[in-house]
Design a binder for these strands. Structure first.
Length: 426
RNA sequence: GGAGAAAUACCCAAGCGGUUGAAGGGGUCGGUCUUGAAAACCGAUAGUAGGUGCAAGCCUAGCGAGAGUUCGAAUCUCUCUUUCUCCGCCA
C-alpha cells in the first residue's frame, strides 16, 4: 500500500511511475473520492461531537429536573442524519480501498520502465561451463542418477510434482542445511513458521486481494486460510500490528518452508522436470529496517544470495529487474539467475526485493524512534535460496563425461562426505 | 470433535446502561528525603488510527473483531475470532 497523501499530492508522478511498472491508471477518480470522503467525514464528525455533547448532558438535566425528552428528540435526529452519512462514508471508503489496495508499489526512480526485456545483467560470476561431450539435461541426469522419481510422483500426487529419492533427497537436504548454516553464521534468526496462514497475512504481504488465484486457499477453515506461497508471507507478518523499539531494528530472519503455488497457466512444456511445480523448497530471508537503512539491507541480502551460489561454484548472473518485472509489492528487485546449460538459459534461484514501506503500511508494521515518533518499517526479502533451481543447475553444470555429477565441496559435509553422484544400473 | 469459562490500557484488575475514554494496584518516568542507594512520600503516565490546523491544539474512532438494541453501550442481544479448563481423539 502506498502513502495515500503522497499519491494525492503527486498524482501525475505516481501515474508515471506506475506506468513504468506497466500499470496504467487514472487516479482522478481516487482523488475525487478522497475529497468527497474527507468533506463528508468533517460534517459527520462535527455532528457526532454535537450528539455526544447532548447525550452527556442528560444525567445533569435529569438531576436538575429538566425536560429530557427534548434532548432525546434532538439526539435522535442527529443520529439519524449521521447514520446515513456513515453509510455513505463506508461506501466511499470501500471504493477508495478497492483502488488503493490494488495499486502496486511504486518502483524506485532509477529502474528502467517496461518488462523482462529491459532487465539488465549487472554482475556475472564465472564463465559459462564448456563441455566436450553431449550434455544431458537435469531430468535425464536426475533419473539416471536415481535422484528424482517423476513417474511415481505423478502416480501418488498428480502432475507438477516430483519425489526426491535416496541421494536426491540427501542432496536436497544438504542444500537446505548448507543455506541454514550460512544464515545462522550471519546472525539471522531461524524461524519455522506455520504453512497455513490467514487472510490478513496474505493482505500484508500483498498476495491479497489481487493475487488470490495464485495461492491454494483452504475454505474448510472459517475464516479461510491459505498455503504459503513463500516463507516471506509468514516472516513479513511476524511483526504485523506491532510497534518495534528503536534499538530492535534491523531485524533479520530466515525460514525454511516448502512453497505452494498454483502458477496457473505456467509454461509447462518448456519447464519440464523440477523447474516449476506446485511445491518447492526454499530458504527465505526477511529483514525489517528503518527507512534509511533499507538500501544497506538490500545490498546485504543480494550479497548473501550471491555468496551462496558462489560457494556452490555455479556460474550465475545478477539481473537488475526493470520496473515492470518487479513483483507487485516491491519497489526494487534483483534476481540471481543460475545457468542451465541444457536450455542455455538463466533461471532465477533468488529474488531479492525491497518493499520499502509498502507491506509495512498494509500490516501496520512500525517502529518508534528515539524521540517517540512513529514510523513505518521497511521490509525486504530475498531467497537464500530456492533449491528447485539450484538442484538442476548443479546436475547440469557439474556433469561429467561418464554421466556422473560432482557434488560441490560445501555440500559434502552435509552428505556424509559423498563427492560424486554416480549413475545407477537399472 | 463435545462441555464450560474468559478477552478492559505496558502488566494485573474494577466496572455490568448515563458527569467512565475507564477506579485501584504494579511498573515506568520525574521529584522530595539521603553522602549514594533502598524504603517512604509527592507528582506524572493510553498507546494508536483518521481528520483539521503554521503551530499549541481541537474533533472523531477505539474496552478481542463485526453487526444490532437504545436518546445514550466497556456494560444488553447476535455472529465470529482467540485464549484457558475439562472430556474425547491423536503425532
Amino acid at each position: 500500500m502506498n502513502d495515500l497523501n503522497y499519491i494525492l499530492n503527486n498524482k501525475e508522478h505516481v501515474q508515471e511511475l506506475l506506468k513504468r511498472k506497466l500499470y496504467d491508471c487514472n487516479l482522478d477518480e481516487l482523488v475525487d473520492l478522497v475529497a468527497k470522503k474527507r468533506k463528508l467525514q468533517q460534517i459527520t464528525e462535527t455532528n457526532k461531537a454535537e450528539q455526544n455533547k447532548l447525550s452527556k448532558s442528560v444525567p445533569q438535566v435529569k438531576k436538575a429536573g429538566g425536560d429530557v425528552q427534548e434532548i432525546f428528540a434532538k439526539v435522535k435526529a442527529l443520529s439519524n442524519e449521521n447514520k446515513e452519512n456513515e453509510e455513505n462514508l463506508k461506501d466511499l471508503e470501500t471504493k477508495i480501498n478497492k483502488i488503493v489496495f490494488a495499486l502496486p508499489n511504486l518502483p524506485d526512480e532509477d529502474l528502467l520502465g517496461g518488462g523482462k526485456e529491459n532487465n539488465k545483467p549487472i554482475y556475472i560470476f564465472k564463465e559459462q561451463p564448456k563441455f566436450d561431450f553431449p550434455i544431458k539435461d537435469h531430468v535425464e541426469l536426475a533419473e539416471s542418477l536415481g535422484l528424482i522419481d517423476y513417474q511415481r510422483a505423478a502416480k501418488i500426487a498428480g502432475n507438477g510434482a516430483w519425489i526426491y529419492t535416496g541421494l536426491g533427497a540427501r542432496l536436497e537436504w544438504a542444500l537446505i542445511n548448507f543455506f541454514i548454516s550460512e544464515h545462522i553464521k550471519d546472525g539471522f534468526t531461524f524461524i519455522l513458521p506455520p504453512h497455513l496462514l490467514n487472510y490478513e497475512s496474505g493482505f500484508t504481504a500483498g498476495q491479497f486481494p489481487k493475487f488470490e488465484q495464485d495461492v491454494f486457499v483452504l475454505n474448510d477453515f472459517n475464516p479461510e486460510r491459505f498455503l504459503l506461497p513463500t516463507a516471506e508471507t509468514a516472516l513479513v507478518n511476524l511483526h504485523r500490528n506491532e510497534i518495534l523499539g528503536d534499538s530492535e531494528l534491523p531485524k533479520k530472519y530466515f525460514a525454511y518452508t516448502p512453497c505452494y503455488r498454483k502458477e496457473a497457466g505456467s509454461y509447462r512444456t518448456e519447464e519440464r522436470g523440477m523447474i516449476r511445480g506446485y511445491q518447492f523448497n526454499k530458504v527465505e530471508m526477511v529483514e525489517y529496517t528503518k527507512e534509511d537503512d533499507s538500501d544497506r539491507a538490500f545490498e546485504e541480502l543480494v550479497g548473501k544470495a550471491k555468496s551462496l551460489v558462489e560457494k556452490l561454484g555455479l556460474h550465475y548472473r545478477v539481473s537488475k529487474l526493470a520496473a515492470g518485472d518487479c513483483s507487485h509489492s516491491m519497489a526494487r528487485t534483483y534476481d540471481i539467475e543460475v545457468y542451465l546449460p541444457s536450455m542455455n538459459i538463466y533461471k532465477e534461484v533468488s529474488s531479492v526485493s525491497n518493499a520499502r514501506a509498502y507491506q509495512a503500511r498494509r500490516g501496520m508494521i512500525r517502529y518508534k524512534d528515539e524521540e517517540g515518533k512513529i514510523h513505518y518499517c521497511h521490509t525486504l526479502n530475498g531467497s537464500g535460496l530456492a533449491t528447485s533451481r539450484v538442484f538442476p543447475a548443479i546436475l547440469e553444470q557439474f556433469q561429467q563425461k561418464d554421466g556422473s555429477v560432482l557434488v560441490p565441496e560445501v555440500l559434502q559435509p552435509f552428505m556424509g562426505g559423498i563427492k560424486v553422484l554416480k549413475p545407477i544400473k537399472k
